[in-house]
Amino acid sequence: ELKPWIEKTVKRVLGFSEPTVVTAALNCVGKGMDKKKAADHLKPFLDDSTLRFVDKLFEAVEEGRSSR
Rank of each mutant, 00 (worst) to 15 (best):
E1S: 07
E1D: 13
L2N: 01
L2C: 02
L2M: 14
L2A: 00
L2K: 02
K3T: 06
K3P: 01
K3E: 07
P4E: 15
P4Y: 15
P4G: 15
P4V: 15
W5T: 14
W5E: 14
W5P: 05
I6A: 00
I6G: 00
I6H: 01
I6S: 01
E7I: 09
E7D: 03
K8S: 09
K8H: 03
K8F: 00
K8Y: 04
K8T: 09
K8C: 03
T9A: 12
T9R: 02
T9E: 11
T9H: 09
T9M: 13
T9W: 03
V10G: 00
V10H: 00
V10F: 04
K11G: 01
K11S: 08
K11A: 10
K11Y: 07
K11F: 09
K11N: 06
K11V: 08
R12Q: 15
R12D: 12
R12G: 10
V13Q: 06
V13C: 05
V13P: 02
V13S: 01
V13N: 00
L14G: 02
L14E: 00
G15V: 04
G15R: 06
F16L: 06
F16Q: 12
F16S: 12
F16C: 13
S17K: 07
S17G: 05
S17L: 13
E18Q: 10
E18K: 09
E18G: 06
E18S: 08
E18W: 08
E18L: 04
E18V: 05
P19F: 00
P19D: 10
P19M: 02
P19H: 04
T20S: 11
T20W: 05
T20R: 12
T20V: 08
T20Y: 07
T20F: 00
V21E: 05
V21R: 02
V21P: 03
V21Q: 04
V22T: 05
V22M: 05
V22L: 08
V22D: 00
T23D: 14
T23C: 09
T23I: 03
T23K: 12
T23E: 15
A24P: 02
A24D: 00
A24C: 08
A24Y: 01
A24Q: 11
A24L: 07
A24W: 02
A25W: 00
A25F: 02
L26A: 06
L26F: 05
L26D: 02
L26H: 04
L26V: 07
L26W: 01
N27T: 14
N27Q: 12
N27M: 09
N27L: 05
N27A: 09
C28G: 02
C28I: 11
C28Q: 00
C28F: 01
C28K: 01
C28S: 02
C28R: 00
C28T: 04
C28W: 04
C28M: 00
V29T: 03
V29Y: 01
V29S: 03
V29A: 06
V29F: 05
V29M: 11
V29Q: 03
G30E: 15
G30S: 15
G30F: 11
G30W: 13
K31N: 11
G32R: 10
G32M: 07
M33I: 01
M33Q: 05
M33H: 05
M33W: 14
M33R: 04
M33C: 12
D34V: 04
D34G: 07
D34T: 12
D34H: 03
K35S: 05
K35P: 01
K35I: 00
K35F: 09
K35T: 02
K35R: 09
K35W: 01
K36H: 07
K36D: 07
K36V: 10
K36G: 08
K36A: 11
K37Y: 04
K37T: 13
K37M: 13
K37G: 12
A38G: 03
A38D: 05
A38T: 11
A38M: 13
A38V: 08
A38E: 02
A39D: 02
A39N: 11
A39T: 09
D40C: 01
D40W: 08
D40R: 09
D40K: 13
D40L: 07
D40Y: 08
D40Q: 09
D40I: 11
H41C: 10
H41N: 07
H41Y: 15
H41W: 05
L42E: 02
L42V: 01
L42F: 03
L42Y: 00
L42C: 02
L42A: 03
L42P: 04
K43I: 03
K43C: 02
K43N: 01
K43R: 13
K43Y: 13
K43P: 03
P44Q: 10
P44F: 01
P44Y: 01
P44H: 06
P44S: 07
F45K: 07
F45T: 06
L46D: 05
L46H: 05
L46P: 02
L46W: 04
L46Y: 04
L46T: 06
L46R: 02
L46N: 03
D47Q: 15
D47C: 12
D47K: 15
D47V: 10
D47L: 14
D48E: 14
S49H: 14
S49L: 13
S49T: 09
T50V: 04
T50L: 02
L51E: 15
L51K: 13
L51F: 13
R52K: 14
R52T: 14
R52G: 13
R52M: 14
F53M: 04
F53S: 05
F53Q: 05
F53P: 05
F53E: 04
F53T: 06
F53H: 04
F53V: 07
F53K: 09
V54E: 06
V54R: 05
V54Y: 00
D55K: 02
D55I: 00
D55S: 07
K56P: 04
K56N: 09
K56T: 08
K56M: 15
K56G: 09
L57N: 12
L57S: 07
L57C: 12
L57M: 10
F58K: 02
F58G: 07
E59N: 06
E59I: 06
E59M: 03
E59V: 06
E59K: 06
A60M: 14
A60V: 10
A60H: 15
A60C: 08
A60N: 04
A60T: 09
A60D: 07
A60I: 10
V61L: 10
V61E: 03
V61A: 07
V61I: 13
E62P: 08
E62S: 09
E62G: 10
E62M: 04
E63N: 11
E63F: 08
E63I: 09
E63S: 10
E63P: 05
E63G: 10
E63W: 06
G64A: 14
G64D: 13
R65P: 11
R65K: 15
R65S: 11
R65T: 12
S66N: 11
S66V: 11
S67L: 10
S67G: 14
S67K: 13
S67V: 14
S67T: 13
S67M: 12
R68N: 13
R68H: 06
R68C: 05
R68P: 14
